[in-house]
């Protein structure tokens, strides 16, 4: 039962990721892209945790931990970017 449910949830989350990708693609503003990118890391953390359970690979929890750390930092790096360069493409 769990063998199907866990990957199914992971697939669902991945589909979420694809939807988020569309947002990165379409923008229109920097903030939209940034939020979408943040969504990525959150979703990926969830997927990794699911995989850790399902593939019986507890090491993946470490990977998830690392993702959490990096997400906050990447988001700040985005904030520091200049505004004038990219806003013209909608």
């Amino acid at each position: 039962m769990m063998d199907v449910a866990l990957p199914a949830v992971a697939v669902f989350l991945l589909l979420n990721l694809v939807a988020g990708m569309l947002r990165v693609y379409r923008g229109p503003t920097l903030a939209d892209r940034m939020l979408a990118a943040l969504l990525f890391s959150t979703t990926t953390v969830a997927i990794l945790l699911l995989m850790a359970e399902w593939m019986a690979m507890p090491a993946l929890r470490h990977v998830a931990l690392l993702f959490v750390m990096l997400a906050s930092i990447l988001s700040l790096a985005f904030v520091g970017l200049p505004r004038d360069a990219d806003e013209e493409d909608t």
Binding site: M21, T44, L48, M57, F67
Partner: peptide, 11 residues
């Protein structure tokens, strides 16, 4: 994001 997905692939 490619790199993050790559991490999933390695997992």
């Amino acid at each position: 994001v490619f790199g993050l997905t790559m991490a999933l692939a390695w997992a």
